[in-house]
């Protein structure tokens, strides 16, 4: 839940990038770090393994600036996608306000996407939350690769709720800001 501090006039929102391992979550957040005006973002912090796989999380604070007297901050997190890091994933979901699911479009990762979406639901349920109630957007990543699942099949499998989605090539910076904008706006609208 967004933390509104009426005394210091601050609004803090937590947005989590979720999805299967090696799907491109960290690439998304690194691109955001490189493109957002440095005056509006903090340091990118990565807790990863020696092999550069996310161990605990990546974290990037982004400041929207002052809106109607409130200083608005977005805290972006990625979770480790590998199946065996579920304990870390669950911890990062604590207090989540919005989600961006980064799906891997490759045919051989199709089942991993579905497992990861199921895992997201299971982990949210432990916090008595439901993915249906949270702002969510989906990025179908790696659309530049040859061996990919069609968009329709991905949509059928992962997006029964019909939330915002876009095609992405995260390593080239394609389709990164659209889902972030969508979810950020939905998170703020929930405060209305």
């Amino acid at each position: 839940m967004a933390l509104i501090n009426y005394s210091s006039k601050e609004i803090n929102c937590k947005i989590v990038y979720y999805g299967p391992g090696l799907g491109g979550k960290t690439t998304n957040i690194k691109h955001i770090y490189s493109k957002v005006n440095p005056d509006h973002r903090g340091k990118l912090m990565s807790l990863d393994t020696e092999l550069d796989r996310t161990l605990f999380f990546d974290f990037l604070p982004v400041d929207l600036g002052t809106v109607k007297g409130f200083s608005v901050h977005f805290h972006l997190y990625t979770v480790p996608g590998q199946v065996y890091y579920n304990a870390s994933r669950k911890l990062i979901l604590k207090g989540v306000d919005g989600l961006i699911f980064v799906a891997d479009s490759q045919i051989e990762r199709f089942e991993d996407n579905i497992d990861s979406m199921d895992n997201l639901n299971d982990n949210l349920n432990e916090y008595h939350k439901n993915v249906e109630e949270l702002p969510l957007a989906i990025q179908y990543n790696k659309r530049d690769l040859p061996n990919i699942v069609s968009l329709n099949e991905l949509e059928d499998a992962l997006n029964p709720r019909g939330v915002f989605f876009c095609e992405g090539v995260a390593c080239e910076g394609i389709g990164i800001f659209e889902p972030l904008k969508e979810v950020s706006k939905s998170v703020l609208r929930k405060l209305r």
Binding site: L64, V72, F177, K185
Partner: peptide, 15 residues
């Protein structure tokens, strides 16, 4: 609503 409109404009320009 004013807050939301202004915040959305800021988000469009930031991202």
């Amino acid at each position: 609503d004013d807050f939301i409109n202004e915040a959305e404009t800021e988000l469009d320009s930031l991202f």
